[in-house]
Design a protein around this nucleic acid. Structure first.
Lengths: 118, 118
DNA sequence: CCTAGTGTATTATGTGCTTAGAACACAGAT
DNA sequence: ATCTGTGTTCTAAGCACATAATACACTAGG
């Protein structure tokens, strides 16, 4: 694992966790790795992981029981909600970028269809 | 104009300029805005613009004539090259992200087709 | 009670980005 | 020569991010 230099690590970790929830790697109610464990796994500082969990909790994605750990929100709708949010954001980013490059929505779709090398 | 907090300003400006070149807003050989002018336009520091021009020059996208200004590279291939590069990057980012959300390439294309609201 | 494993908080340090301000070097026009 | 508009360079300051190290607060299980 390596992080992209341009984006703060804590944001990249947030995205990874959210994607793991959508993909089912982390399931609703499941215990997430401990702050120290995830810090070891990513070779980053526990404080950085702590920030990630704090922000994810503020977004209603997980909750914390002091002394016990951090857990994915039980609400099963969380998966669909995250999936919708993140997919929309990816599509918007892609289409907006392609538009600024001079490609229409249809041209963008055509290009992505005819490109097997990505 | 406002910048995204997560990404350094100089990177965002670089992308904007490259997209303008691909879209034809800036044409090969054309004079680019002066460091101070672009700084005023974006309400950022001239040093930040200077850094953008320096990096773009290092990538062969523009060249500088001291006392005259900074100009888009004359080479007309620059447009096609940038277009190819940036489109590939957008497609890769999109498909990779969708994959991590659990969508195959075909599903991703379907979703983007059926979504007129983005 | 004690230990181990949780999240949390604090302090200090280093790095990169951004800004402000000032000065310098070069080119073109008057 | 002088003025104006270029890019360039330098110094100082502030902020966010990330790290290291340490300590604290809580929970479960021996």
């Amino acid at each position: 694992m390596e992080f992209q230099a341009a984006l703060p690590i804590y944001l990249q970790v947030k995205t990874m966790i959210k994607r793991d929830i959508v993909a089912g790697v982390l399931q609703p109610g499941e215990k997430m790795p401990s702050v120290r464990e995830l810090a070891l796994q990513f070779t980053i500082n526990p404080n950085t992981v702590s920030r990630v969990y704090r922000e994810l909790e503020a977004e209603g994605i997980c909750f914390t029981r002091r002394g016990m750990g951090t857990f994915v929100t039980e609400n099963p709708g969380i998966v669909r909600q995250l999936q919708e949010e993140m997919a929309q954001e990816l599509m918007a980013h892609f289409l907006n970028g392609m538009n600024q490059l001079g490609f229409s929505r249809e041209e963008a779709i055509l290009m992505i269809k005819e490109n097997s090398e990505c």
